[in-house]
């Protein structure tokens, strides 16, 4: 009962504070937006790769056609002789492709700084100029893309700080804290249960945008076993981090120490 009532009070504290709610909403929007960014990059790369495969397939079929028709190459280029190895290889476009991971949706990393396909020909080398990354505005890359990992790594701590910064201070400023302790409640117990509640809150924080995004984007099935386990790891790390921060906070501000 004790924990439950603290939980309910903390819930009220959160709901009645419009700025915390706004901050939370902004956070969720940012997270959904981050996932959207990751997904659109993933889709863009997929689309590009499909276009390349299509082009390669068309060229293959064209070459096979030459064989079937018994000609050596296109009629307007008489010097092309596809029956010789040199021209056969020359006219067979080969690409080496870096297939994007489905987990790219969560974290873009350096995917935009590199090319993800390379045409292999008789002249190709790792020093080729076509290893350049996808055409992009360098100023956009310089600002950086907001992805889900950015939200988790940098915005969650800010949100956590915003949530906890006045959990205790409002109570001590308004004199509640002394009141509670004179009522026989152990202060540390209260702080501790508050933290537990914050954990639940935190879990929903990171999980909500993810599930919202999952439900609005049913056509993506990114939740492979790998990405799921990665996400779980993230949550656990965040849990521990969050707990340490709160715990430290409680020791630092313990009026009875």
């Amino acid at each position: 009962m004790k924990y439950l009532s603290v939980l309910l009070f903390e819930w009220k504290h959160f709901v009645r504070n419009p700025f915390k709610v706004i901050a939370w909403v902004l956070f969720v929007i940012a997270a959904v937006y981050g996932l959207h960014n990751g997904a659109s990059l993933f889709n863009k790369q997929q689309k590009e790769i499909e276009a390349i495969y299509k082009k390669v397939k068309e060229q293959h079929e064209k070459n096979l056609d030459y064989y079937q028709q018994g000609v050596k190459g296109p009629p307007d280029r008489p010097w092309v002789d596809n029956t010789t190895p040199f021209w056969a290889i020359w006219n067979l476009p080969t690409y080496h492709i870096k297939q994007p991971e489905t987990t790219m949706v969560y974290s873009i990393g350096q995917a935009e700084q590199f090319g993800f396909y390379k045409q292999i020909s008789v002249w190709a080398s790792p020093y080729d100029a076509d290893m350049a990354e996808e055409i992009a505005n360098p100023e956009r890359l310089q600002v950086g893309t907001l992805d889900f990992s950015f939200v988790i790594l940098y915005l969650t701590p800010i949100l956590l700080l915003l949530f906890v910064y006045n959990i205790k201070s409002t109570e001590s400023e308004q004199g509640f804290l002394n009141l509670i302790s004179t009522m026989g409640r152990k202060h540390t117990g209260m702080v501790d249960s508050t933290h537990r509640i914050l954990h639940v809150n935190h879990f929903t924080n990171t999980h909500t945008p993810y599930s919202i995004w999952r439900h609005t984007n049913k056509r993506y099935h990114f939740c492979t076993r790998k990405s799921f386990s990665n996400l779980c790891c993230l949550f656990i790390v965040q849990f521990r981090l969050g707990y340490s921060i709160h715990h430290y906070h409680s020791i630092w501000h313990n009026p009875y120490k």
């Binding site: 937006y33 960014n37 992009a136 505005n137 956009r140 600002v143 950086g144 893309t145 907001l146």
Partner: peptide
């Protein structure tokens, strides 16, 4: 800045 850059692109 982030959102606007993505938007203009």
């Amino acid at each position: 800045p982030n959102i606007l850059q993505s938007a203009v692109s």
